[in-house]
Simulated assay, not measured.
Amino acid sequence: MKRARPRPRSWNERELRLIDRLAVVHHKLDSANRERAALIAYISRLHAGRMTPPDPAGGVAVHVDTAAGQLSWRVDAEDTHLLAEPDSSVETLTRLSFLHLHRRPNRPAWRSG
């Protein structure tokens, strides 16, 4: 006797909303990881950092020596291109990092009412 195949279950409205919310969260997390990798690339360029050879997954470790000790980060394979060539997001982060130099040194950065 042949067994009947189970009928595929359809998603209910609540499950579909959760899937949509999960997709949004993943998109935001991917964006945050890209920005993090761009900032690591900037710090590495600024302080003559060095990278390890790629691991089996294609990611690399970035090391920067400072007076306080070594700083290290892992950058995933999909973001390692940021370490090789500056792109617009790295250039933006570089410009933003120098904004503090343009305020007057004897004035507070903010004023209370």
Rank of each mutant, 00 (worst) to 15 (best):
R7V: 09
E35C: 03
G69M: 04
L18S: 10
D87F: 09
H26M: 11
N106A: 13
R107W: 03
R104K: 13
G49R: 06
S72Y: 00
G69S: 04
V25S: 10
P54W: 10
P108Y: 00
E15W: 07
L71W: 07
S44G: 10
V62K: 04
P53W: 05
H63M: 09
I40H: 05
D76R: 09
R50F: 02
R7L: 06
L99A: 13
H81T: 01
G59C: 07
L18P: 00
I40E: 05
S31T: 03
E15S: 15
D30K: 04
R104S: 10
G49F: 03
V62N: 03
A38D: 00
R5D: 09
S31H: 03
V64G: 07
R95V: 07
S112Y: 04
V64W: 01
A4H: 06
P6H: 04
R50G: 07
I19K: 15
A41I: 03
P56S: 11
N12D: 15
R14D: 12
W73N: 02
S72H: 03
E35T: 09
T80I: 04
R45T: 04
A84Q: 14
H100Y: 02
A4I: 11
K28G: 00
D87G: 15
E85N: 13
F98R: 13
R111T: 11
W73G: 00
P8R: 12
G69V: 03
R36N: 02
L82S: 01
I43A: 12
T52M: 08
G113I: 02
P86Y: 02
H27L: 06
R7S: 04
A48D: 09
W110F: 11
V25D: 12
P86S: 15
V64Y: 02
L93A: 14
P105Y: 08
D87E: 15
H81G: 01
R14K: 14
R104V: 05
A32H: 04
S44V: 01
S97Q: 07
I19V: 14
L101E: 13
A68S: 09
R7Y: 01
F98V: 11
V24I: 14
S112T: 08
A61V: 06
D20C: 12
A41D: 01
W110L: 11
A4Y: 06
R3C: 07
T92P: 00
P54I: 10
A48Q: 09
A68V: 01
A84I: 14
R36K: 13
P105V: 14
L99K: 07
E91R: 15
R5V: 09
R104I: 03
N106Y: 02
P53C: 02
E91G: 10
N106E: 13
A32R: 06
L39H: 11
L101W: 03
A32N: 05
H27E: 12
W110Q: 11
Q70G: 07
T92L: 14
D20M: 14
N12H: 13
